[in-house]
Design a protein around this nucleic acid. Structure first.
Lengths: 131, 131
DNA sequence: CTGGAATCTGGAGCGCGCTCCAGGTCAAGC
DNA sequence: GCTTGACCTGGAGCGCGCTCCAGATTCCAG
C-alpha cells in the first residue's frame, strides 16, 4: 500500500480545519505547497495529514500562528534544527501548563460564586425560585 | 470605616485591567456608570472593585463579552434573576471544564511529540546537538 | 500661580485568525 | 455534451476585544 491522496473535502473532514483555513495555512507557509492533481486541484498526502494534526495540537493549545510559522520553518530546515524545535515545544508546553494553572485558579473562584448563588437561592422565597 | 474610593490609576493597579479597558467596559455596560468626583474624574468604590474582580474571573476563563453583558444585566435586574445567573454561571463552568479537558488532551499529544524529539536528539551525532 | 501629570470624551485604528466573495476552471454522472 | 458540484485564485471583509489618539480639562506639588 502506497501513500494515500486526499481531496480538499476529505482533508477538511479528517483534519477538522476548514477549507479556507487549509488554504490560508498554505499561503502563509504553515504547510508546504500541497501537491496538485493534473487539473490543479490539491491532493493532500498522509504526510500532510500528519502535519495538519501537529498543527491542530499546537493551535488547539493556543500557540500563536507566528510561532507555528517559526516551527514550520525549523522543520523545513531539516535535522539540524531538532534541538531548537524541542526547545520551542518545551517552552510552549510550559505555557500551556501555566495557562491551565490560571484556568484552574480562576475556575475555583467562579465555583465559589456558584456556591454562593446556590446558598442565596435556597434562602429565597418560593416565588423567586419558580420560573 | 466607610467605603473607600479609588482613582482610575489605583483601579488599574488593583483590578489588572487597563485604563482603556475600564472605560470600555463602562461604555458597553459591563460596569455601572462609575461615581464621579467634583471635576468629573472617576472614583471607583469597593463595590466596583468587587465587581471588577468578578469580571476578571469570567473574562479570564474565556467568557465572551456578550455573555458577560447578559450577566451584568441580570445583576442589574435584581434578586429575581438569581436563578438565571446561577444557570449562566453553571453553564460557563461546564464550558471551562470542557476547555480544560480539551487542553489536557492536546497537551498530552504535544508532550508525546516532545518525547519523540528527545529520543531523536539522543540518537543524533554530536555535531547536530551542539549549539 | 504655574507646570506637569492624571484624567476626560468621542471616535478611529489595530492585531489576530480566519472567512467570505467574485469570477473562473475542472471533474463526473446522465 | 451538459449540468452540477467541487475546487481554483487573489483579495477584501469581519468579529472580537481591546488600544490608541487628539484635544480639552482637572488636579496637585512646588
Amino acid at each position: 500500500m502506497t501513500t494515500e491522496n486526499y481531496s480538499p473535502a476529505q482533508t477538511v473532514e479528517i483534519s477538522g480545519f476548514s477549507l479556507d483555513t487549509l488554504r490560508y495555512y498554505e499561503r502563509i507557509g504553515l504547510i508546504e505547497p500541497v501537491r496538485r492533481a493534473a487539473g490543479g486541484h490539491r491532493r493532500y498526502t498522509d504526510d500532510d495529514i500528519g502535519w495538519l494534526d501537529m498543527l491542530r495540537c499546537l493551535r488547539g493549545t493556543g500557540m500563536p500562528i507566528a510561532q507555528m510559522q517559526t516551527f514550520a520553518e525549523l522543520v523545513r530546515d531539516g535535522d539540524t534544527t531538532v534541538a531548537e524545535r524541542l526547545a520551542l515545544l518545551e517552552e510552549h508546553d510550559a505555557n500551556v501548563e501555566a495557562e491551565m494553572a490560571r484556568l484552574i485558579d480562576l475556575r475555583r473562584k467562579v465555583q465559589e460564586k456558584i456556591a454562593y448563588y446556590r446558598g442565596a437561592l435556597a434562602q429565597m422565597p418560593v416565588e423567586c425560585v419558580r420560573d
